[in-house]
Design a protein around this nucleic acid. Structure first.
Lengths: 344, 344
DNA sequence: ATTAGCACTCGATTTTGATGAGTGCTAACA
DNA sequence: TGTTAGCACTCATCAAAATCGAGTGCTAAT
């Protein structure tokens, strides 16, 4: 028994167990499989095979004398080797999404909503990170006698505003000069390229207004990195109530908390971006989850790429018995749409 | 019995019922009241009085031979006439909040979080509406050969960005002229004051670039009204799991959905702002709720006023047996802090 | 290698009974 | 007349007991 290989038949049985459990959510018994599959075997035979599969760790019994349900390893095997492409019912999806919002945040919000509606699971969409982006425009304007408005535009047309306090009022001409100074030196540079030497040069040229330069640089750095910039949009979190296994005990509360905080979801985004294996799709089953409160869930993520280094993550969070085929399919589709939408 | 007046004694008993129920969440019986109150009466007497109170509709029995719990009317009477000021344990609160964020949205987010933590209920904070605000600055900059960036600053330092498409590239001088034109004519005006006549004048002066003027005006109007500007921050929605009466059946799901959508919460904001009675505090009990999914909740709202017409709503959503005294107190406190924080 | 048959297990559901908090009512009481 | 003691009654809650049935493992026959 030790060096047992996974026979064709066992595969088929495991697949049947998973499929059936995904549909019903109930432990599935030998008799059911016996009819469900095309291999004509009696329930007794199936029982023997299932006993083997259990020993190998692919399925478990919730209790003696109940059917079997897939273990995490079972799901994993299924996802890795047994998924099949579904008929895509995604035409409709494409239509809906195509009303291309000009505002990126709106588009992403809408994407999250759409995914949640289509899949009946919870969804999340992270705004793209813009780390390695290049500065496109810096614009200072006087707004009060003691405040300057700094508008910072980076590649990809992401816009940031910051208010700067200044001691003495600056006249129009000075502001104009500062603007020219900043733009001629900084435009086209990424944040990493703005080094100390450059800053020193700028300060020297700014003369008595060198402190403003410091402020602006700080603002730029802050605007680009800005922690809270990791906007994450969620939708359909209440879909988890459709799956009892996610709502008993305090699980529901914890999940909802996680979705509301959004802080923890960032972990998901980071992991997902880091582990990108080429397909852009990642599946986390149960304990594999990067987020503590989702140990009873499965998570499927996709990485989209708007070009110019703007990458983000979209994800679906549902029960372990989620419809992996469909979810992966939907996710791929949305991912490709996002990829292409800004490559006009 | 018909024209029975609410005797002093009945009031006291009702009050005791409410108080006790708020604490324990259990139906309260006559014997309990008999000891809980200072009026020395036997349980039998209390029973008679309670029967009266029930007939009058202030309390109800969940089932025969259980204690009584307050009806909506009972809560209402309590809130209107029987609340008392609590010892304020809010010093701590003040400290926490005072780390005055420079960014308004951050501050509001933090406020919501704080309220949720302190009260153990769900909270919401709406960003101030800025309808009647005056323009402070308009700034056009070229960002691409075919795109202009319009930055719009209104009183209260709320900043909006919009990208405008332009047909032919504009040179620096033209942009400068347009900026001057716009600012000299529009600064200090509220959106209502920008009428057709003014627009016509502007267009005439802009000559061949009159279409840009149209675009800018549109952008200004959009930026100020913008529907989705009704940002609403929520926090502690998972606190509802602490109150079983809010989580059985599909209630939890509906509530969570409402909080996530945020759309419906807007109704709350509008109502709350409209019905402001001077104190700034509003209490909605059960069916009085403006939001369908909160028919089993009580809602307490407060209206804050940052000055310059920037008003917003903060609210607490919890079970009907919420600690009204404390909630009102906390809310008042936070409201005042917000009121003063921007009146430096 | 497959299958029919059977005893067995155990969660889920229903049944039953005991408990006790709380009520309404009546009669006695100050 | 208002208050109170006493008592029968109701009914949710809990625990123990009984029942049910889906599903298993094992053995023996094919």
């Amino acid at each position: 028994m030790r060096e047992m290989e996974l026979s064709e038949r066992k595969m088929k049985i495991l697949q049947a167990v998973v499929r059936n459990y995904l549909e019903t959510g109930e432990p599935v018994g030998s008799r059911t499989i016996s009819k469900y599959t095309d291999l004509n075997l009696s329930s007794a035979t199936i029982r023997n095979e299932m006993a083997d599969l259990e020993e190998m760790g692919y399925i478990v019994q919730p209790h003696t004398s109940a059917g079997r349900i897939p273990s995490d390893a079972g799901y994993r095997l299924y996802v890795d080797t047994m998924m099949q492409d579904k008929e895509r019912d995604v035409a409709e999806l494409r239509d809906n999404l195509l009303e291309k919002e000009e505002r990126l945040d709106q588009l992403l919000k809408q994407t999250a909503k759409l995914l949640a509606t289509v899949t009946n699971y919870a969804s999340m969409v992270s705004a793209p990170s813009i780390h390695q982006n290049k500065l496109k425009l810096i614009q200072l304007s006087r707004v009060n006698s003691d405040q300057l408005l700094a508008v910072i535009v980076v590649e990809g047309n992401v816009i940031k505003n910051t208010l700067l306090d200044v001691e003495e009022e600056l006249d129009d001409e000075t502001i104009l000069k500062l603007n020219i100074l900043l733009n001629t030196h900084l435009n086209g540079l990424s944040i990493e390229e703005i080094n100390l030497k450059l800053i020193t040069t700028l300060k020297a040229q700014a003369g008595i207004h060198s402190d403003i330069i410091s402020n602006v640089i700080d603002a730029v750095a802050k605007a680009i990195h800005e922690e809270d910039d990791l906007e994450i949009y969620t939708s359909g979190t209440n879909n988890i109530f459709k799956y009892p296994e996610l709502t008993d005990g305090t699980k529901a509360s914890e999940l909802i908390g996680t979705f509301e905080e959004k802080q923890a979801l960032n972990e998901l985004v980071v992991r997902s971006l880091a582990e990108d294996n080429g397909t852009g799709i990642q599946v986390y089953i149960g304990d594999e989850s990067p987020v503590e409160s989702m140990k009873d869930c499965s998570i499927v993520t996709a990485t989209y790429d708007l070009g110019e280094g703007m990458k983000g993550t979209i994800g679906i969070i549902g029960p372990k018995r989620m419809d992996y085929d469909k979810v992966v399919d939907n996710l791929k589709d949305v991912m490709h749409q996002l990829d292409s939408i800004y490559k006009k």
